[in-house]
Nucleic acid binder design. Structure first.
Length: 294
DNA sequence: CTCCAGGCAGTGT
DNA sequence: ACACTGCATGGA
């Protein structure tokens, strides 16, 4: 991969296994707006990014090399060898052939821990467009103004300090519904240090899951999403309704299988690469509607 | 109109 | 251990 400074922009050439549309639209993040084909406004780490992918290159508009190095390189996980990850997974399991073949451009984002925690608490029992609306509303009300792009105004997701000052009623005004007390509990635990990213990073996968689930509104699925997307624990394997259907179809002969059984199977079968397998399967299954009853 | 969504907590066996 | 239910809100 080549990194080129071109005027005020950063250009990447010869980037393999990266597709901006697949990476953003696969359901792992909620804070972005599509501007055009393969062109997006992305909000992360208190910054607003204008990014576009063409045949030959990825363009980070108005971005310094320092900002690329410090923020976006790791956010988009561009340093990692996904060729190798895909090869290992395929050698282990040819049932992943279609999913990896079609979704080879998905990269697992390294998102901010706190934003990921709150976002996936919101995600329960909601569709992705709704989650995006709520994240945008909370950011607009309580986050820092970042600027405008194509006539749209963008705000950062609020920091722990900013959300700490928000009441349950104010959250409800952002349409979070019954999740309001869950968010209050999560913010309180992070603010007072009962839950900290550092602590979670040092814990084993099992203990990390248990710690996260001390938060009201955080169960196995949300904890796995936070671990995978917000703590870079790539062994995490979130099992939601989609993955449940897909796994039952591909690995359990179409039989009804409970979530904990699927979790155990994934841990044993995919090991450290569970998170990658999960994303390929999730996005592929959702796109093709695999196992969905009509 | 009814049904359901990247689930979870609470309650009942 | 497991099954069942209510939950805010908005879109199909």
């Amino acid at each position: 991969m080549q990194i080129i400074q071109s005027g005020e922009d950063i250009l990447l050439r010869d980037v393999r296994n990266f597709d901006i549309t697949q990476t953003l639209e696969c359901g792992q993040c909620f804070h972005f707006v599509k501007l055009d084909t393969r062109e997006y406004a992305v909000v992360a780490y208190q910054r607003l990014l204008h990014i576009k992918q063409t045949e030959q290159e990825v363009i980070f508009y108005h971005t310094t090399e320092q900002e690329y190095d410090q923020i976006w390189k790791s956010y988009f996980d561009l340093e990692r060898d996904y060729e190798k990850i895909q090869q290992i997974l395929l050698a282990r399991d040819d049932r992943l052939q279609d999913a990896i073949g079609k979704m080879a451009g998905v990269r697992i984002l390294q998102q901010d821990f706190f934003e990921t925690l709150i976002s996936f608490i919101i995600s329960q029992n909601k569709q992705i467009p709704h989650i995006k609306q709520i994240v945008a509303a909370i950011s607009k009300e309580y986050g820092t103004y970042l600027g405008e792009m194509n006539g749209q105004v963008f705000y950062a997701f609020p920091t722990v300090a900013q959300l700490s000052a928000v009441s349950e009623e104010q959250l409800r005004a952002c349409k979070v519904g019954f999740r309001a007390p869950y968010i209050m509990d999560a913010v309180a635990k992070v603010a007072e240090g009962a839950i900290s990213e550092q602590q979670l990073q040092t814990q084993s996968d099992e203990v990390c899951m248990q710690t996260l689930q001390q938060i009201k509104g955080v169960g196995s699925k949300v904890a796995n999403c936070v671990a995978l997307f917000g703590l870079a624990k790539r062994s995490a394997f979130p099992v939601d309704v989609w993955i449940k259907r897909i796994m039952e179809t591909l690995y359990f002969d179409g039989n009804e299988t409970n979530v904990s059984t699927i979790e155990r199977f994934a841990k044993e079968h995919f090991g450290k690469l569970g998170g990658y397998a999960q994303q390929y399967l999730f996005y592929y299954g959702k796109t093709t509607g695999i196992g969905v009853k009509k």
